[in-house]
Structure formats: C-alpha cells, structure tokens
Design a protein around this nucleic acid. Sequence first.
DNA 1: ATATGGAATACCGTAGACGATCATACCCGA
DNA 2: TCGGGTATGATCGTCTACGGTATTCCATAT
Lengths: 216, 216
Amino acid sequence: MSIVVRTLSDRVFEVVREQILKGRLRNGEPIRQDALATELGISKIPLREALARLEQEGLLINHPNRGYYVQAMSREQVDEIYALRLSIEPQAAAYASSVATDDDRAIAMRAFTALDTAAHSNLADVAVRNREFHIALVEPGRRPLTTQLVERLEVLAERYVIAHLEPAGRDARAHIEHQALFNAWLERDKRKVEKLLKEHIQGTLKDLRAQLKDPD
Amino acid sequence: MSIVVRTLSDRVFEVVREQILKGRLRNGEPIRQDALATELGISKIPLREALARLEQEGLLINHPNRGYYVQAMSREQVDEIYALRLSIEPQAAAYASSVATDDDRAIAMRAFTALDTAAHSNLADVAVRNREFHIALVEPGRRPLTTQLVERLEVLAERYVIAHLEPAGRDARAHIEHQALFNAWLERDKRKVEKLLKEHIQGTLKDLRAQLKDPD
DNA sequence: ATATGGAATACCGTAGACGATCATACCCGA
DNA sequence: TCGGGTATGATCGTCTACGGTATTCCATAT
C-alpha cells in the first residue's frame, strides 16, 4: 500500500524545508546552489527542482539571475497566514472528525501522544510534532488539496513560532488546549472542534503578535 | 518598476499550465518529458522545474520512475475546490475592495472590460479573462499568499469549467453577476461584495454539478 | 494460464561547459 | 572628493552528453 519509492528531489525538498524552518538557512540569505548541492552530495537538477517547489510553497523567492533567497518574515505575513488558517482549518478538522475511520483515529492518537512526549524537547522538534498533530486532525477528510493547504500554512507558521516563541507558560497552555481539542475531535463534536481550534489558532496568533512587538 | 526579466522555466510553467487547462494535454495522460522538451525547443532542466511546480499546484502528479501525469478530474475535487474558494475568496475580495488604490481600481476596470469584450470568444479565452478578473478583485489586498491561493484555486476550477460548461444561458447570467459584483466592489460595499461573490461561486458550482451528473 | 526472462522505453541523476547577468571594486576625469 | 564608466569575478540559467535503473510489455516456456 504505502509507496516507499521517492525521488531524490522529493527528499531534498523536505531536507531543505526543515533547514529553513530551523533557521539553519537564515532569513534574507541567498541559497548558493553549487555549495548546497555539494554539501548535500547531489547534483543540481534535483536541487533546483526542490528549490522551485519551495518557492511555490512560499518559503523561498527567486530573483532571476540572482538566485533563490529565503523569504523574509514579516508581521503582515503572520497576520495573513493566520487569517487563512482560521478560514480553513477549523472547518476542515471538524469535518474530518465526523468521517474519520478507526485507523485515522489511531493515527491521530499516535500523533497526539508523540506531541505529548516530545513536549520537553527543543522547540523545533515540538513544532514538527505539532504540525503532524494538526495535520492528523484534517487528513481523515480525504480532501487532498485542503490537507496540503493546511500543511503548507502550518509550515509557514512554524518559522515564526520557532523564531519567536521561546515559550514561557505557553507549553502548558498549548497542551491543555490540544487535549481539549483532541477530546472533542474524538467525540466527533464538530461544533466544539471548530470552536476550540479557532480559539487555539487565535491564541497562538496573539502570543506571536506580542512577541513580535517587543524586540524589533 | 515592473520586472520583465523572467527565466525560461518560469515561462514554460505558464505555457504548460495553459496547455493543461485547454485540454491539449489530457486527463490521465502521461507527460513525455523528452518529447515535450523538444517540442518546446528547450532542454529538460527548465521543463522539469516547471513540471515540479505544476505538481505542487495540483495540476500534475508524479509517479517516481514513471513520470508526470495530468491530474485526473473528479466530482469530489470539484466540491473541494469550490469549498475552499467559498472559504477564502469572498472575504478576500471584500477586504481588497476597501483598500484598493485608484491604480488598482483602474486595473480591475480593465480586467472587467476585457472579460466583457471577450465574452463571445471561445470558452478557453473567456476562462482566462474570467480568472484575471477574479484575481484583480483580490490583488489590491496586498496579501501575496491569499492572492496566489485564489489564483491557484481559480486555475484548478478552470479545468472543469472549460471541460464541462459548454454554456447555454450561462454567459448572460455570469455577465450580470459580474456586473453587479464589480459595482459593489467599486463602491467598496464589503458586505455586498462578499454576498454576491459567494452567490456567484455557488452558482457556478451548481452549474458544474449539473453538468457532471449528466454525461458520466 | 501463469511465470520467467529479456528487450525497449523513459525517467532520474551526474558531470562539465558556456554565455548571460549581477555585484563589486577600481579607475579616471571633472 | 565625488560621480560615472569599466573591468573583474562570482553565480546563475541553460545546454549537451552520458549512464544507471525502474517499468512495461511481449515472447517464450512450463
């Protein structure tokens, strides 16, 4: 059933994406193709394919004849990302909760506990688990575009969370919110899922905005 | 101001996209890379980059070691695309109407009249104008992700419209709807824009569904 | 009818070359 | 001293050529 066959370009896409998320490739910095290719031990075709796709995702931007740059972060983009998430994700998760199979629910459960046990690792790892948990709530809807879109927005949001949310009491609050959200999801309480997820997203946005005001 | 510098890969992306939309590359058909490259008079590097991006857009799907295929159309995908459009586009256009500059409004006006005068060309051309008009209503919001997303959904929807809506009285009705929608937009009547656009999208979806029931 | 094997096809990735373009440093003249 | 033009170097975008490998398909044999 599962397809383990993957092209090099596919894997490079993920590798570079995570490097961007974790800040290894920084904000407005240019991507030196030859250097990165040799570093990854690959040739330029798969690398350029991956970069092209990352541009399509909004993580990179290409200036013709000058190369790819890591897309700069901005307060406005935070607002935009979260506005889109609010428009899409609560509805999608609510719907998915109502049609999830037992398998789906088991997968979501694993994602939840994985997030739970990772809670005290470093922030970047938690962020990945967090992403996987949110996706697991949407995936059972079997709406590929929606799921892909949620993942994409989650990825874009992650950059900001990792960069700015050195969390004080956030950990604990997020955990409680996730718990309540997941319970509602398991109970297929669509209205409650929608409400809780909306509040959860808004809560994160609020934290982010507060952090963004301070330093800069 | 405007950047006329574009890479080959960029232009190929659009060319191939339009070929898919116009049905020149058909439904589940494989993309023969060498053949298409020589036909376009280019080498495989820019072509493969374009294909990778088209996969990210949801128009193609890649099977490792077997190549790219045109993504199959389905009733479920129609529902999904239009559900997403309804979640995003009305809000986005309403907001954009309230912040549009005079330049934006002039551009939108041109898009509207272009759609108007093209109304009796072939369906594919009308569809492109239609896309450009819808984008022009959203673009002034200066929210790049949102605009890109609206464009993407519009493109995905277009395939179905071109393939299935050999329009009976649709032309006339769409024109009236566009006219009313555009008037509200120019008047910056956010609530009305949102309402009319929502109805317009729902109307198109209804027509599409009806067409999809018949033949298959 | 099924399985085996092999040939044909196309994809995937590598390597190297080359012109075009951009950024920078330098130089020269006012 | 400063501005503008020019040389230089780095990097990108694209091309060509090549080989390995996965998939498909068909013929043959059991």
